[in-house]
Each structure stands twice: as C-alpha cells, then as structure tokens.
C-alpha cells in the first residue's frame, strides 16, 4: 500500500474483531452494534490527527474500551444490568456432539466473566482471546505493563475459581 494507511482499510480490517470484543464485553448484540458505530465514528474524526506510525489496532481498542466504560457507566446510572455474557454460543465448526458441551462451557464462562471488573474483563479478552501483547493491553487500559499482567492474572484466577464452582 503506498503512503499511509487509509481509514477505509482500517475500517475494513478491524470492524469484525472490534464488534466481537464489544459483544463479549457487553453480552448484547444491539449494544455491541451501537458501540461499534460509536467507536469507528470517533476514530474517523480523530484519524486525520493520528500519527502516521500509530498502532491502529491498539488505537481502536483504546477508543472502544472508553466507549464501553461509558456504556457501563450509563447502564449503572439507569439501574439496568450491565452485562449478560451468558448469551448463546455460535460454533459453526463444532461437531454436534461437542456443541452442547461447548455451549454449556461458554455459558458457564459467560457467568464467571460477568463477575470480573471491566478492567479485568478487558485485560482478559485482549490478552487471552484477541492475542494482543501486554504492551498494547497496558496502553489501552492506560496502565503499566506490570499492572496489565496483574489484571490478567487476577482475571484468570477468578475465572478458574468460578469455573470450579460452576462444575461443583
């Protein structure tokens, strides 16, 4: 690609994973769709001022993260349930025999993830599910890498304990 990245290419490349992230954070497809739009419209307005060598992926997650925190805040003010991650799981590649187990596990995990703080949830999703390096996770969360590692560690610990409780 000649010259700097074009916003249209960034939009094309990252919209699906940002939607998945918003969906997993909120557990609600409509809220996730709204957050996807908010994120990319904000990104679009900020894009002309973005340095040429910017990490677009981390930049988008940072915007999405802020939008999601605002969303949780307004949900709290409205007194509605912040998340319901226990939505159905769609495993197109799963074998029929595995599907119920996959679904059961996903629901259990959804319930456990729901108990994480937004920061822990973000750190866990970005590191363990989206595969971002700690450097980016730290930047998105606005904290040191050590602190980001601690968030992931705490999240994993809570998830393991939570899943054990679900099993028993």
């Amino acid at each position: 690609m000649p010259g700097k990245a074009r916003f249209a290419e960034i939009l094309e490349s990252y919209q699906k994973e940002i939607y998945r992230y918003a969906f997993r954070m909120t557990g609600n497809p409509e809220d996730a769709a709204d957050l996807l739009q908010d994120t990319f419209l904000r990104a679009f307005r900020a894009f002309p001022r973005l340095p040429k060598d910017a990490n677009h992926r981390a930049w988008l997650y940072r915007i999405a993260h802020r939008q999601i925190l605002n969303h949780f805040r307004s949900e709290r003010l409205r007194g509605t349930s912040p998340i319901d991650v226990a939505a159905d799981v769609h495993d197109a590649n799963g074998h029929p025999d595995d599907l119920s187990e996959t679904r059961r596990l996903a629901r259990a995990l959804g319930r456990v993830v729901r108990d994480l703080t937004p920061r822990q949830r973000t750190a866990l999703l970005l590191k363990k599910y989206e595969g971002l390096p700690y450097r980016d996770v730290a930047e998105i969360l606005g904290m040191s890498q050590e602190n980001a590692r601690a968030q992931v560690y705490q999240a994993m610990k809570k998830v393991r304990n939570g899943l054990k409780r679900e099993e028993s």
């Binding site: 699906k16 996730a32 226990a86 159905d88 995990l109 999703l125």
Partner: peptide, 18 residues
C-alpha cells in the same frame, strides 16, 4: 475455553448499521 461469539446474522446487522 470458548466465549460467546456473535452469530452470522448479528454480525451482518452490525456491519450494515456501521
């Protein structure tokens, strides 16, 4: 372990709205 993932139709709606 797998986390809930948007269905194809949910993604299509979100993509079109975006």
């Amino acid at each position: 372990p797998e986390l809930p993932t948007p269905s194809a139709s949910e993604w299509k709606r979100a993509h079109e709205a975006l």
